[in-house]
Computed example of a mutant assay.
Amino acid sequence: MKKKEQATRTRTNLVLAAARNFDRHGYDGTSLAAVCADAGISMGALTFHFRSKAALAAAVADEGVGELQRIRTARPRTGRPLHDLSCLVLAVAATLHRSVHARSAARLIAEGHVVSDWPADWRGEVEELVECAWKSGALTEEVRPGTATRLVRHLVDGVTVDARVTGGQPGPTPPDFAEVWRAALTGLAADPRNSAAGLP
């Protein structure tokens, strides 16, 4: 039992160290030697758990995507699309800010080193909520649903980059993003005076 627990700890440490390195340097800029040094684990221990850098990247992505997918599936469904969109966007943004696994997964997927359903699932969820907001009259007529969807994606992508740049140091935080999102929501809502109703 003790050996199994040790193996689990070693694997967890390797995945975390790999996530930090992939997040900072991308797949091509990360070496297995750097991951071992970061984790304080030998190359032999790494190759025991992961046969290749690709296998390690897949494990990191699984962890990060799992966090993001749980947010998506647990999102509220109140029938108020702008409110539900706000809950989803703010939760995803906060997770990308605090979770190196989630940021690393997003980078590995964007760079094409890992294949995942997450980007399509996330995009589809946002599109659905924006479309519902548009059909219900909650979205201003001056902004097309496709434009609103792109705006949301760009804002959340920005959180990922900001969090990566700060490297866990004091910097952009979810409260800062909430203010940015509030400003964006004011421009999306049919009646800006009621945009606060879209906030959780």
Rank of each mutant, 00 (worst) to 15 (best):
A61P: 02
L88V: 06
A18P: 01
D38Q: 15
L14Q: 02
V152Y: 07
P175M: 03
K53N: 02
V114S: 03
N194Q: 13
S42F: 04
R51C: 05
T95G: 00
K135R: 15
L108C: 02
W181T: 09
A184S: 08
L185C: 03
A190W: 05
S31T: 11
T149G: 03
M43I: 12
A37L: 15
L155P: 01
K4D: 11
V180G: 04
T186I: 07
Q169T: 11
A133K: 02
H154Q: 13
G112Q: 05
Q6M: 10
W181V: 10
R150I: 04
W134P: 00
S136Y: 11
V114M: 04
G26Y: 07
Q169N: 12
E127F: 08
G64H: 07
A19G: 12
A94Y: 07
R9I: 10
G146R: 07
W118L: 05
A120V: 09
L139K: 11
T73Y: 06
A184M: 12
N194Y: 12
E5V: 12
V114T: 09
A57K: 04
Q6L: 13
L96S: 01
L88T: 10
L88Y: 11
P174A: 03
G66P: 07
E127A: 15
T8N: 13
L46I: 06
V165E: 12
